[in-house]
Design a protein around this nucleic acid. Sequence first.
DNA 1: TCTATCCCGTACGGGAATGTACGAGTTAAC
DNA 2: GTTAACTCGTACATTCCCGTACGGGATAGA
Lengths: 198, 198
Amino acid sequence: MVSADTRPRRRADAERSITRIVSAARECLSRDPDATMEDIAKAAGVGRMTVYGHFRTRPGLVEAALAEALRAGELTLGSVDLTGDARQAMNRLLASSWSLVAESAALLSAAQRVLPEGRLRELHTGAADRVEQLIGRGQGDGVFRTDMPVTWLVNAVQYILHGAAEEIRLGRLDPAEASDVVTATVQSILAAPAHTGS
Amino acid sequence: MVSADTRPRRRADAERSITRIVSAARECLSRDPDATMEDIAKAAGVGRMTVYGHFRTRPGLVEAALAEALRAGELTLGSVDLTGDARQAMNRLLASSWSLVAESAALLSAAQRVLPEGRLRELHTGAADRVEQLIGRGQGDGVFRTDMPVTWLVNAVQYILHGAAEEIRLGRLDPAEASDVVTATVQSILAAPAHTGS
DNA sequence: TCTATCCCGTACGGGAATGTACGAGTTAAC
DNA sequence: GTTAACTCGTACATTCCCGTACGGGATAGA
């Protein structure tokens, strides 16, 4: 927040470089959490030193990339209608954002390794909270199960998305049917049991 | 397989060291896939050089640790009764092996990074196949859903187990209730829809 | 045009991890 | 008790990546 305010004078090409670098960082780190500064620089089409010109350390760049991904997430999340039937709302949410969340999983793990303990959760809270609220509302309406902690349900969904991304990356899941598979799986996890059998 | 056969002469203390090293490797790599040779040596209570005396390279040690974990897995898997109702069989399977599978997740990812492409799947096939067969049988019996690829179901279960391990590690899931949560979640994913709705 | 900003290559230093070499002390096995 | 095997410390070479320093060249912005 400091750099953007106290440094209002920045040349247009620098702005463009930064955009490309952060974007490249997202892409690289999402594929390999151990991606090197040079890997990222190459992907951005700039020299390694140019990267250091804008981001003094690797953690700094990782955080910027994560922040960018989260901003994009917040944006799409904010544009989704979460009212009405919680199941339908969840479907809409997944339809518009599952691939984004899934692809960011590796980036998240990269951040987890280089950022101080609380920092990640601090940044990530916004997005997770909204999902948690939706699930909570669904529980209140009786359409989602209540026999498990909400935290677990939220994270179980996360892990399914992560898994779907991995399966696609490994060529074991057809990207075309991934969306349907993910929504169906998530609905199964969240659904309230039809009857209270043993 | 080679070292055990062509080198029948090994002193008892060496045998003990190897056991301790492999065991320590499992433990360390399951907590941190990037665990160092020195970390492992320290955990095993031996010097780093002793480790190199038995495993020339890190990948070699990782493979040995993975093989050990898989052997343990095969052992428990083999002792589980997989006949009868597929759902019950799955519950028995999970009850006896979910924590082992879950804890080995990090080890698996460590292996994925240092072992050549096909090697991991080659080693891991045995265990995965058995789960796949059980799910396939459940589908044939009409108790498990058939609207998704079996491969996806198998891996979705994997990812749930992985997630459960992570949640426990982060203190967000009570180990005492983890078993119930896992089995219930897995059953939800696998269950055939009660009625053929829209 | 002129200047401050930015691009980017080479070069260097530091740190961490892997794997090798040597060798002295210890211990199992015969 | 003798020998061969094992332990394990120090020291070293190598590699990889991070981050810094310097400086020449290109370019946006006035």
